[in-house]
Amino acid sequence: MENVGYFAPSDVGQALELLAEQGSKATVLAGGTDLVPAINYYSLWPENLIFIGALGLDYIKEEGGKLLIGSGATWTQILEDPLVAEKAPALAQAARQGGSVATRNAGTVGGNLANASPAADLTVILLALEAEVLLKSSAGKRTVALKDFFTGPGETVMNDDELLMEVQIPLPAGSAAFQKLGRRKAMTLSVVNAGVKLNLDGDTCSGACIALGAMAPTPLRCSAAEEMLVGKKLDAALIAECAAAAVAAGSPIDDQRASAWYRTKAGTAIVARALAQAAGIGG
């Protein structure tokens, strides 16, 4: 990496100016845990790095009926935060299963979303929790629902001059669960992962969100499967049927970690487990 420009703005205004000036020549650097491997493995040579770790975006708070998480909050912050534990425990559960202590200390929620990996873990549970992201540029700001955020592997609706500022989770966050299947118990990207959120009226489901990762070019919301649950009492048979429908929405591929066949088989089990966990059924 020669002659890479490095900027470390100390407030959001400066950062947005830099982004406006440099457009596609700027690459945002948060924890660097996706960016640095990309530089090392795929010879990505950013022209200018803009480090956003000094912008004070690492807050977690509740405001206006939402859980607001600054894009700079790390996995470690999320898994240790008492407010997250209380309001959105499934998010903490997902954060606990990411990478290793070192990557959790450095990696941020904003990076996980902006990197737009179809296998990302925080992303899939946030998608199930119907989170929105706040994007800002020097020209203005907008909020985008996560289900409309991803456009392809590594691609989002964000413009070059936009910064992902904040993740907003509507509260209450229902009864949610996250399940991850990797190739070992730590330091593994997901072979398939699933996030679900159920709104329960007694034992009847009044609303369901099912998100699936590593099964398509983007993290996926499985609306057909979700509809199968609404107005029904959840039991093992319905859960199995719904999990199969959720996975059928995917278009998995073969890669180093697993084949499409495996993702489909094991993915069905993972979705079923997430549903059972959220519904409080079985072990």
């Binding site: 491997p37 493995y41 290793s100 190739r183 070992r184 118990k185 730590a186 330091m187 593994t188 990207l189 073969d254 890669d255 180093q256 970690r257 697993a258 084949s259």
Partner: peptide, 24 residues
């Protein structure tokens, strides 16, 4: 070579070469 004898998706980095961790 996860698909041996097919050379497809040969592992190129330690990220995809799974040695056990302490958790395993």
């Amino acid at each position: 070579h996860p698909y041996y004898p097919d050379a497809a998706h040969a592992v190129e980095h330690l990220t995809d070469y799974y040695v056990p961790t302490f958790a395993d």
